[in-house]
Design a protein around this nucleic acid. Structure first.
Lengths: 253, 253
DNA sequence: GAGTGGTCTAGACCACGAG
DNA sequence: TCGTGGTCTAGACCACTCA
């Protein structure tokens, strides 16, 4: 059988090489419609049987593609009501690890101060992380996060201008305290995956001064690469904070 | 259809409550045969169609159970040759994070010194982690790991005697430098899952002395709970090392 | 070539959520 | 009550490994 659309429209095309499994190509197609903003967080996907008809594949093939999208956290099933695009929430993640709490023990939303935004030539390491050429223009943003009356977290953030020009054109007030919602609202960019590397090292004199640390104190440095639904890197950042009281949980299968 | 064994033996029983999905019960059944030592690392599982016949379920149901066992790292598929029990390798994990290398940059297998082994009443927190009652007997083992001529990692390890009595009956030479292989070899216990929590804190005077740190230096403390194939906790440990140069990578979907 | 997992199909029936 | 996802079945054919 070469075409199983039962008398109705011809099937929609799938992304990806024809030699890839259908469920892989369907995964990429759905991820691409999230990346493009065609489907946005909160939206419902078509029902599985509708997707099967739409793309001309069997229901079991749709199910396998959706299984993997759910595993990767891009979408979410709600039994009886449908399948929905997720909005991951990474922006406030680091604050949790630094274990600061208000007097009642609740988590704090720290104040956010954008110190500078400029376009600079991409250093080699950052260009590589972002899939750009060395020396190509890149947006560099410095941000400090404050709580308990002092700077606690220093962030250097690098963004490709092709996707993120609005981040230098809008005022800090329009951007607000959380970056990832601003990326989505102002630039149509959705962060879906992150990879981090944690290092403990000696504070530089500048960082020590900004964080109120003594000479010889240690900082925790968290390097992060953030990717969109299609797995393309869209942000690189390094954050530094006081190492003491840092805490992190992981589980490995 | 109530019984689909085609004229041959009746199906083998599945673990778990009858109201659970068949693929979940099959997952638990296979995990249980790993825990019990019935199937050991390196062994091949029966072919998927044989498992389907053995347990009286459809091939697709076997496939879904095996998919999840593979996702959880308990088994491994090799296309064309079979499905095999995996042997996870966690024991040396922490050493990687501390970034010590020999002069040629290779990873080091640090020397391992068992300082003490004793049976003590379980403190409340440890009893809870191990699913025991407070005050019940627990094995406490202290181990130091050395490289570059000094102690670099201090480990306090707690084990339930019901599973691990051989660990106090055998000599340190019989145990060898790696604990998890010794658990498997001497006690028939296989570690399949771990959860860790990393904290940076001030060194206690004793830890500072043992690690050669100055007063006020920081240590990284890694608390770990290790579980077998059935998800039962079988070991709790806390390891401390110098915080400086600590490094950790994670990715979050 | 025999046996294995990998992909894909085409359904049936159940459990859940919302109107 | 209807539409959704959740489970389960029963096969076909392909791709890979190894003797």
């Amino acid at each position: 059988m070469t075409n199983r659309s039962t008398g109705s429209n011809p099937p929609a095309p799938l992304e990806g090489d024809a030699h890839l499994p259908l469920y892989r190509r369907l995964y990429q197609t759905i991820a691409g419609r999230i990346t493009s903003g065609d489907w946005r967080p909160g939206d419902a996907l078509p029902a599985e049987l509708d997707l099967a008809r739409l793309y001309g594949v069997a229901p079991g093939t749709v199910r396998k593609a959706i299984d993997e999208l759910v595993d990767d956290g891009l979408i979410e099933r709600r039994h009886g009501s449908g399948t929905f695009i997720r909005r991951p929430n990474f922006d406030n993640m680091m604050v949790r690890f630094l274990l600061y709490r208000d007097p009642e023990g609740r988590e704090i939303m720290p104040a956010s101060h954008i110190i500078s935004r400029e376009i600079v030539p991409a250093p080699a390491a950052i260009a590589q992380h972002l899939g750009m050429a060395e020396g190509e223009d890149v947006i560099r943003m410095v941000r400090h996060r404050h709580w308990e009356g002092a700077a606690r977290l220093l962030e250097d953030i690098y963004l490709p201008p092709a996707r993120f020009r609005p981040m230098i054109e809008h005022s800090p007030e329009e951007i607000g305290p959380l970056l990832y919602p601003a990326y989505e609202r102002l630039c149509g960019q959705l962060v879906c995956f992150i990879e981090e590397e944690i290092t403990i090292l000696d504070a530089t004199p500048e960082d020590a001064a900004l964080l109120g640390l003594k000479d010889g104190d240690l900082v925790v440095a968290i390097e992060r690469i953030a990717k969109n639904a299609s797995g393309q890197p869209i942000e690189w950042r390094i954050s530094r904070g006081e190492a003491r009281r840092f805490r992190y949980r992981i589980s490995v299968g």
